[in-house]
Design a protein around this nucleic acid. Structure first.
Lengths: 323, 323
DNA sequence: CTGAAAGCGCTTACAG
DNA sequence: CTGAAAGCGCTTACAG
């Protein structure tokens, strides 16, 4: 079972390789009977095009990379699902990289672009240091801002957070706290803290705020500290992918009555389909985010114009953790 | 910013392209000062190897495909996480394909192998029809059996199911049922039903069994039917990725006291880390499955010997749904 | 409409 | 130790 090339087909059909190429690609014009001969030859030889060669010639890999902190988390897994779905519509495959918050995994993607292993990448990561060279690569991001040259899509962090906090206040919360996993880098996620502080100021309330860089695995400690420091909170806004579930469980463990003693609203990460406990939350339009980001990236790859910032609307979804 | 090739480096360093290639790959021997010149040239020109060309030459893509029914499900997302981690240790990237139970997505992978877009694939799918051509491809599978030529890894389905059911019986269950999402194809998952029937026979109990092919989205209906048909069950073994959560919720909805009226054990799909409700379950060693499957695939790709069947041990994890 | 040739960016015998 | 050449499997002007 040797590998059959365009040459074999050409010989079998008694034509030149160029002609074979033309019928494969429906490019140029080729006579009807020649075309038929070639098609028969392809059939007889069970030919299939070697796309490594094709791509080298065309200088495109038709692959994009998706860089997420971890894939085995509901938000990112959902994102990956729709990214793959959208990319495949445009003939792109997607390779997966879990950064695990390690910088080397992140620079690895840049390397893959430079080495022509992928055409571009979508970055969902809040940890990598900026690198100049990054700006020349076809990259799009979610939430994170890199300056004018890298388009990103985000959700209406500020407004959604305001609404969520006001909701708790309208439903009786007097001492509202904010606990968040703070990105290391410029990110629209920071708008959530700003929104919180603004609302607190408007109501003349004292902020009860912990927003810090949390390493994977440290969530429990941070939550425990928060609950000790602000034992009197009766409403908490939780920001960050792995934080809400931890927070919810810790609150239960401390014997808080939810929502009577304590209301909770979370940004991100509550996915009914996975049966995760029913926390009231600001739900991101993950499907739409995924599709937009892919389309932006493909435009970027083809050097088309893109707008830098795309903002999508979240949905406030009531669960059982608010009044 | 033109693309810089090995030729440019060679010219800059005043050597032949072969020499440049040799220093890049540390292959052959090259004089110390020549090497230095070349390295300097690479540095000066900011050269990085075009891996499309490299791979065409070597006839390897260093990419494997992971085909799962859907990526946005805890089990598969975890699998993907470890598959990517293991693959990257061997220098492989992994592209992701969610079959969504569609046959065309599945044959697409075969196409990708034939077109040299990937070197091989891991199949986690229970729906595709057998195709002869598949047997010549570097493919490994999870649970599913394709005959001698395709290696697969699975867990101890039979024993684990026996243990789980016996556990419920030992803890008072008298009318034990089995509800499962049945694979369309030859799969070790079928051992679970066999184990169940064996245990029922040994205890002289009447089987209460529904094991059928369930389309995505139909879980609720099937569960409702089961509960109507076997309203008297006081212990149920649930088999199938998306079924356990649905089953649990339906039982609650019907007002069953768990575990007093009804004990539940599930195979697959309960992941504490995602806060999914605490169902007693047979936990698959997903990390180990992933790593084994990748290693098997890479052996397959390199035409090394592999054993056809690898069985890994599950863990019986007590939750709150059994006595 | 079609064939022969050059070239995509690399590696690898083959001479020297 | 090193350069020139052939070749991986394709596409694409270029002639005819």
């Amino acid at each position: 079972m040797d590998i059959v090339t365009i040459k074999d087909v050409a010989k079998y059909a008694g034509v030149g390789v160029g002609t074979v190429s033309r019928v494969i690609n429906n490019a140029g014009s080729v006579g009807e009977k020649t075309r038929k001969k070639v098609l028969e030859a392809m059939e007889a030889l069970n030919y299939s095009r070697n796309n490594m060669a094709f791509r080298l010639r065309k200088n495109e890999t038709r692959i994009i990379a998706l860089l997420v902190p971890v894939i085995n988390h509901p938000f990112f897994a959902n994102l990956a699902y729709y990214v793959e779905d959208e990319a495949s519509k445009f003939g792109y495959s997607v390779i997966l990289v879990s950064s695990q918050q390690k910088v080397d995994k992140e620079t690895e993607i840049i390397t893959k672009i430079k080495h022509r292993e992928v055409d571009g990448a979508v970055f969902v990561t809040h940890y990598m240091h900026k690198e100049e060279e990054l700006y020349d690569c076809p990259i799009v991001s979610i939430d994170r801002t890199f300056g004018e040259k890298i388009p990103y899509v985000t959700s209406d962090n500020y407004d959604a957070t305001r609404n969520a906090i006001n909701y708790m206040i309208e439903h009786g919360a007097k001492r509202v706290g904010f606990i968040g996993s703070k990105p290391l880098v410029d990110s629209e996620v920071l708008e959530r803290e700003r929104a919180y502080l603004d609302v607190m100021a408007e109501h003349g309330m004292n902020p009860r705020l912990v927003n810090e860089i949390i390493q994977h695995g440290e969530e429990t400690v941070v939550v425990a500290d928060f609950m000790e420091k602000y034992a009197d909170v009766d409403g908490v806004f939780v920001s960050g992918y792995s934080l809400s579930q931890v927070f919810y469980e810790e609150a239960i463990r401390l014997g808080k009555k939810i929502p009577d003693d304590l209301q909770i609203v979370s940004y991100d990460g509550i996915f009914k389909q996975w049966g995760i406990s029913n926390i009231t939350s600001v739900e991101q339009p993950v499907e739409e985010i995924a599709r937009q980001v892919v389309r932006l990236l493909i435009k970027k790859i083809h050097n088309e114009e893109t707008c830098t910032r795309t903002v999508l609307k979240t949905k406030f979804v009531l669960g059982t953790t608010t009044k």
